Simulated scan of single mutants.
Amino acid sequence: MRGSRTASSDMSAWCSAVVLLSLILLLSVRENNASDSVRGSQFSEKPCEEIYVVGEGETLHTIGDKCGDPFIVERNPHIHDPDDVFPGLVLRIAPFYFSRKVSDI
């Protein structure tokens, strides 16, 4: 009788852990989807905000291309090493718009 109680309590603890883990994963996926849709709507209006927070896997080069600012290092004196960019680093961005040439008109 004692063995069946232990097995039953082990099984209920295991099921509770699986349900809890499933809920955590579901909520994290929903948060990522919501933040992607917000991020996408921001970029449709203009390339980047004036204050930019570096995300996972980004470099100054990729941020400069995405935001249209080739002078990120010059605008951010707190960057001592351009290769030492990490997620969460806050940057000042000033998009640089190229003027069209007369031949393009």
Rank of each mutant, 00 (worst) to 15 (best):
V38F: 06
N32L: 12
V54T: 01
I24N: 02
G57K: 02
N32F: 00
E58P: 03
T62H: 08
V102C: 07
D65T: 15
F98N: 13
E56N: 09
P70H: 03
I93E: 07
H80L: 08
I63D: 01
D104I: 03
S22N: 03
W14D: 00
L60P: 01
V102F: 12
E49R: 05
C48I: 04
P82V: 10
L25H: 02
K66N: 04
G68V: 06
S28M: 04
D10N: 08
G55Q: 06
A13Q: 11
V18S: 11
V102A: 11
K46D: 06
L23P: 01
K46M: 09
I51D: 05
I105S: 12
S12D: 02
A34K: 08
S8Y: 11
F43A: 15
D36N: 13
T62A: 08
L27S: 09
S103I: 12
V102G: 06
D65S: 14
L91T: 02
E31A: 13
L21M: 10
V53K: 08
K66A: 15
S37F: 04
S16D: 08
F43T: 15
F96A: 11
S41F: 08
K101Q: 15
L20W: 01
I105G: 12
H80D: 13
P70G: 06
D104Y: 06
E56G: 02
I79R: 03
S35M: 11
R2C: 10
L26T: 09
S12R: 12
W14G: 10
L91W: 00
L60S: 07
N33H: 13
T62Y: 05
I79W: 06
G3M: 05
K101D: 15
L89P: 01
D36T: 07
L26F: 01
E45W: 00
C48N: 05
T59I: 06
E45P: 04
S8L: 15
T6F: 15
G3H: 07
V85F: 00
Q42D: 00
N33L: 09
T59F: 05
S4F: 13
E58V: 01
P70T: 05
I24A: 15
P47R: 15
